[in-house]
């Protein structure tokens, strides 16, 4: 596979503590792939490994044919992968618009940046209303929109979303889900969706992986996993 992302048997550790063991995962072009699992299972670590924040000890990560295993985050961003991180991590003392501008830090074409920003505002009209407001004063849901919008500003071909539904009211979760689907369809961006909310993730994705104690336990289409006895008992509350 030349397009998309291929993770081949990576091991990741934080100091002496092993976080991922032999994780393999594939994301095809234009695909939404969900990665579900409980707290501490290794979901966030997988995304950090892709971005180059926590490089693997072993194994390889390839994106569109390029080996990105040891690249630093700015180089990974440049190749077309961005992350909307866990906990949103917006820049609190900057305006909404400045946060978005930072998302386009590696872009130099101001016309293109303005155009992308317009698209982001179209997805999240709420952000347009609040463009001059400090990001730290936004509600949790608005900050989540900003984090996703910021990640879109670099015009990625692969978007990594870490727990976009965390801490949001159910109605907002639906909204975000709808927007994720639109972004995928309209922009043709592949998406890795990391979620504890397995319900939402399995409905949105084409394929999904279940990660348990640092290793992939199950994989299949969203529908297959939603039907699996194990997933239903462990992640869907019934």
């Amino acid at each position: 596979m030349t397009g998309g992302l291929t993770i081949d048997r990576i091991d990741v550790s934080y100091g002496p503590r092993s976080a991922l063991r032999g994780v393999s995962l594939e994301v095809a072009e234009r695909e939404i792939v969900a990665l579900i699992g409980s707290n501490g299972a290794g979901k966030t670590t997988t995304l950090r490994a892709i971005m180059g924040l926590t490089p693997p000890d072993r194994g390889t990560i390839r994106f569109e044919g390029t080996d990105i295993t040891r690249l630093a985050p700015p180089a990974v961003v440049k190749l077309g992968i961005t992350l909307s991180p866990e906990g949103r991590r917006v820049f609190p003392q900057m305006s909404v618009e400045e946060n978005l501008q930072l998302g386009a830090y590696l872009k130099t074409d101001t016309v293109e940046i303005a155009h992308t920003m317009k698209r982001v505002y179209a997805y999240f009209p709420r952000l347009l209303e609040r463009r001059g407001q400090m990001a730290g004063s936004l509600s949790g849901g608005e900050q989540q929109m900003l984090a996703i919008g910021r990640a879109l500003m670099a015009k990625p071909r692969l978007l990594l979303l870490d727990e976009p539904s965390l801490g949001l009211a159910p109605i907002r979760v639906q909204e975000i889900g709808q927007i994720i689907r639109e972004i995928n369809a309209e922009e043709g961006i592949s998406i890795v969706l990391v979620e504890q909310n397995a319900n939402m993730a399995l409905r949105l994705c084409q394929r999904a992986y279940v990660i348990e104690s640092g290793a992939i336990a199950l994989s299949g289409t969203g529908a297959e996993l939603a039907a699996s006895e194990h997933v239903r008992r462990a992640y869907l509350g019934g």
């Binding site: 924040l53 961003v77 991180p85 820049f91 998302g103 830090y105 910021r150």
Partner: peptide, 15 residues
């Protein structure tokens, strides 16, 4: 300013 507010988040924007 981004680095001052959140170094890792700045890194993730390509800084």
């Amino acid at each position: 300013r981004a680095v001052a507010q959140d170094q890792e988040a700045a890194l993730l924007q390509g800084v």
